[in-house]
Simulated scan of single mutants.
Amino acid sequence: MKIIAYDNFKPGVTIDDLKPYLRDEVSNVWRLWKAGIVRENYARADVGGVIIVFELDSVEAARRYTDDFPLSKAGLLEWHFLAFDAAPLPLEYLFDPTVDIAQPWDRTAA
């Protein structure tokens, strides 16, 4: 199952509070990426923080990893989780056969 984990800085946390931990934080995530546990990692565009996509059996397993992150251990982050399975296949089976799925698929382009 895929689990999206995203963090928020706790109130009052600044970039200066994070700096002493960033090298270890990034190294930890890279190690998990190389192990196939982290599948994707993004910087948030809306606020400071990250989005990590885990490939694990449960949210509890993802929480164990995020709890072990240096920034989490320092008490600087709050984590949120979304778990999801792959889309049921074949997806088209779920649609009414009269639904128009012909090309061009992107009809927003002129």
Rank of each mutant, 00 (worst) to 15 (best):
W30I: 15
R23N: 11
D17L: 00
I37G: 01
D16E: 14
L22G: 02
I51Y: 07
I37M: 00
A35W: 10
I51K: 02
I37C: 01
P20K: 02
V47A: 09
W30Y: 12
D24Q: 05
I15L: 09
V47K: 15
S27Q: 12
L32R: 08
G48V: 05
L22A: 09
D17W: 06
D46A: 12
V53K: 06
D24Y: 02
D16Q: 12
R23T: 10
V53I: 03
E40N: 09
A35S: 10
E40W: 03
N28I: 04
A45I: 15
E40D: 12
V26Q: 11
D17P: 08
G49N: 00
N41I: 13
A35Y: 10
R44G: 01
G36Q: 06
G48A: 10
T14C: 03
V50F: 13
K34R: 10
P20S: 01
P20W: 03
V29E: 02
G49E: 07
I51T: 12
W30L: 13
Y42S: 02
G49L: 03
R23P: 03
D17R: 00
V26D: 07
K34Y: 02
N41G: 13
V29T: 11
G48L: 02
K19T: 13
V29D: 07
I15T: 12
K34H: 07
I15N: 11
G36Y: 04
L18E: 12
S27P: 01
L18C: 11
R23E: 12
L22N: 05
I37K: 11
N41P: 12
S27L: 09
V50H: 03
D24W: 00
P20M: 03
N28Y: 15
G49K: 00
V53E: 12
D46W: 12
I52S: 04
V47H: 14
V26F: 06
W33T: 14
W30V: 15
N41W: 14
A35N: 13
K34L: 00
L32K: 06
W33M: 13
L18S: 04
A35I: 01
W33L: 07
D24F: 04
A43Q: 06
A43D: 08
R39G: 04
A35C: 02
K19M: 09
I37L: 01
L32V: 04
N28D: 13
V29F: 06
P20Q: 04
